[in-house]
Computed example of a mutant assay.
Amino acid sequence: MTELRARALTWAEVDPARNPFELDDDAAKELVGLVTPLLPDADAAKHERRRSLDPVTGFLVDRYGRWACGWNWSPGEGDIDGGVVGAWCCAAHSVTTADATAPLVVEALLEWRDWLEDLAERFTALAPPVGPDASSADPWHWERACTRLVTVVADRTQADSAWYGHCHQVLEWFLAHSGVDEERAGRIVENAVGGRFDSWVAPDAVVMEAVSSRFARTIGTDQ
């Protein structure tokens, strides 16, 4: 189901400014109680893995919005490859008793939300001063933004299995935040990054410089 795929999320769907969310201690305790009956038992989770958590993900999406489907996007080969949520490993290992697992789900959701809010702040800080067209900005701004965003995503994902998928996504989100339409953003990122990053390897300085330079140049030429 597309609505349950964190890799398909757009910036509009995760942008904290468009998707308000608050969870104080009392609301978090309430959420734990609501999640508990939706959890599979440990044996089912080991065999069904990600599908065993679909009821939880569906509930969170219905309650908070599609951004919430990234709650279990952990680093490495978890339920979904290449994420950032350290509180969760995977259904096969994180699901134990319902009473122990439900608080982990809430912790993971909050960590995912914190990541989205952190990105929003970074995007605002890194966004170049542009006019009606992003290509009018000084390429230096785009190069700097690309380098810093790739670096932080590599760090948060531990540059583990398929980390570059979320890296592509974050760069596309940044462009969307900067006013670039989704289709064009996809072309720009694919042209700059496609095939240049590998699993289990953070990009070195040479690769980073090449990608960031190409990212900036493509923004200036892709219309």
Rank of each mutant, 00 (worst) to 15 (best):
G165R: 01
D26H: 02
P20W: 04
H93L: 09
V153S: 12
W11Q: 00
E121N: 04
D118L: 08
H168A: 10
N191W: 08
Q169P: 13
D204S: 13
A108K: 06
L171V: 04
A192F: 03
V180Y: 09
S74I: 05
E117L: 08
H166K: 10
F174T: 02
T151H: 10
R49P: 00
D81K: 01
A205E: 15
H93C: 10
D138Y: 05
R63W: 09
A44L: 15
A6N: 07
G195W: 02
R50L: 13
A12D: 15
G86W: 09
A12G: 15
R196F: 09
F174Y: 11
A205I: 11
T221H: 07
D79S: 13
C146P: 10
V211S: 05
R122C: 04
R50F: 05
E209D: 15
V35E: 01
V14C: 03
W200G: 02
V56A: 06
A154H: 01
G78E: 03
A216M: 05
A68F: 11
L116W: 03
V35Y: 04
V180K: 00
A102M: 12
H141C: 12
W67I: 10
K29G: 11
A102L: 05
W73A: 08
V35D: 12
D155C: 07
V61M: 09
A192C: 08
A100P: 04
E172I: 00
A98H: 10
L119Q: 13
F123L: 08
A145G: 00
T221G: 03
E48H: 03
A100D: 14
W163H: 15
R51P: 02
E182Y: 03
P128F: 07
A145V: 12
A176T: 11
D118K: 04
S136C: 03
D160E: 14
L39V: 03
R49Y: 05
L34S: 13
A6P: 13
C89P: 00
R7A: 15
S161K: 08
T96V: 06
F215K: 06
G78W: 06
A210R: 11
T57S: 11
E3S: 02
R156N: 11
C90I: 01
A100S: 08
R50S: 09
G220Y: 02
G186L: 00
V84S: 05
L53Y: 04
A108N: 05
D15H: 01
A6F: 04
H93G: 00
E121D: 14
L31F: 12
G58M: 02
A137H: 11
S161V: 12
I219A: 01
C167H: 00
R49A: 14
A159Q: 03
L38R: 09
D15W: 13
W115H: 14
L39G: 06
P16G: 01
W140E: 11
D155P: 00
D41C: 12
H47Q: 11
Q223L: 09
S135H: 07
W73S: 13
S136N: 03
R50Y: 13
W140T: 05
D25Y: 00
M1D: 13
L34C: 02
T101K: 08
E182H: 12
A210Y: 12
C89V: 12
E107A: 14
E190T: 03
D181I: 09
R51I: 13
S135C: 10
L109Y: 10
D25M: 06
E121L: 11
E3P: 04
L9Y: 07
G58C: 07
D24I: 11
F174R: 06
A6S: 09
G194M: 09
T157H: 02
